Simulated scan of single mutants.
Amino acid sequence: MAFLLPNLTPSLLNLSKSKEKPIHHTLPQAKHTTQYPISLTSPSLATSFHNPPAQVAQINTPPSAQDNKQQKDEFYLNLGLAVRTLPEDLPLLFIKDLNYDIYRYDITFLDPLNTFTGIENYKLIFWALRFHGKILFREITLDIYRIWQPSENVILIRWNLRGVPRVPWEAEGQFQGTSRYKLDRNGKIYEHKVDNLSFNFPQAIKPVSVMDLVTACPASPNPTFLWGPVDAHSSSWIKFYRAVRETLDCEGKLLVQNGLATCS
């Protein structure tokens, strides 16, 4: 028995070691396989793999910069449309209607004596010009002399209106003026102002004093055909202006449909 114990002990030890070897090799493999998917799903590594530097730079840019660029592009687009449309529409205003896409719905129209607001009133003004122009004049046209931009949001047009009245005692007359169009931040026209009027009529007009001019129209220093003496108010041009003005005063009684005025 003393000789058997030493012989049995190494075999038993060898068997125990042989059984421990697979356990020793599988443990690192198991640990490696369990750690590998965990390392892929960790938040720090996932963000580093899936977020490139370009996206980080895009997030850091302020969102208002892109909005300002889009608004600026829209402004220049509508500005270019207005600059092209106005020279095409104004010479034909006594023949056909205007293109109202370039105007804002609350546009304000101003002349030396009156102010009107709203796109419907603005449409009615040009309808009245065409309607009464054909009644009072055999020929009436508007010519554009110059168009320019003193600033980015202002369009100026210098025009000349001439016509031949239907009465035999009046020859051809004409007067010039300036239309000033103001645009908003989107490039839409929100104000149309007519000023700098000057007349050139063939009939003799009685000269008046400076005090008469100031009393007639104290709001503007530019004398126009509207501010002559009482005898000059019988001209076709004055009748033309009064007819257009009376049409606007009766806007609640008139409905403009397809170029025709019907009673409401």
Rank of each mutant, 00 (worst) to 15 (best):
P221S: 08
Y105V: 09
P223R: 08
L129N: 04
D143H: 11
A261G: 08
G187V: 05
R104Q: 11
F225R: 06
S151E: 15
T26A: 14
P63V: 15
T215M: 13
F94R: 04
S264E: 05
P150N: 03
R162F: 07
T247W: 02
V167K: 07
S209K: 10
F109Q: 01
L254K: 11
T33H: 09
C217G: 07
C217I: 07
A232E: 03
P53K: 15
Y100Q: 04
K123S: 03
V154N: 07
L98K: 05
R130Q: 08
T247A: 10
S11M: 11
L5A: 10
D106W: 05
N114M: 08
I125F: 04
C217A: 14
G177R: 02
S11H: 09
R245K: 13
S264Q: 12
D89S: 07
L8W: 07
Q29V: 14
Q66F: 13
D212Y: 15
R245S: 12
I119F: 06
L45G: 03
E120Y: 06
K188D: 05
S64K: 07
P53E: 14
L248E: 09
L136K: 00
T26L: 15
A171N: 10
F109P: 00
S151H: 10
E88F: 10
A219G: 03
A216F: 06
Q149H: 06
E246A: 09
A65H: 12
D89W: 05
K239Q: 07
I119M: 13
R146H: 12
A2E: 14
T115P: 00
T26R: 11
Y103Q: 02
F94I: 03
T61N: 09
P223F: 06
R185Y: 08
E20K: 15
P63D: 11
L45S: 14
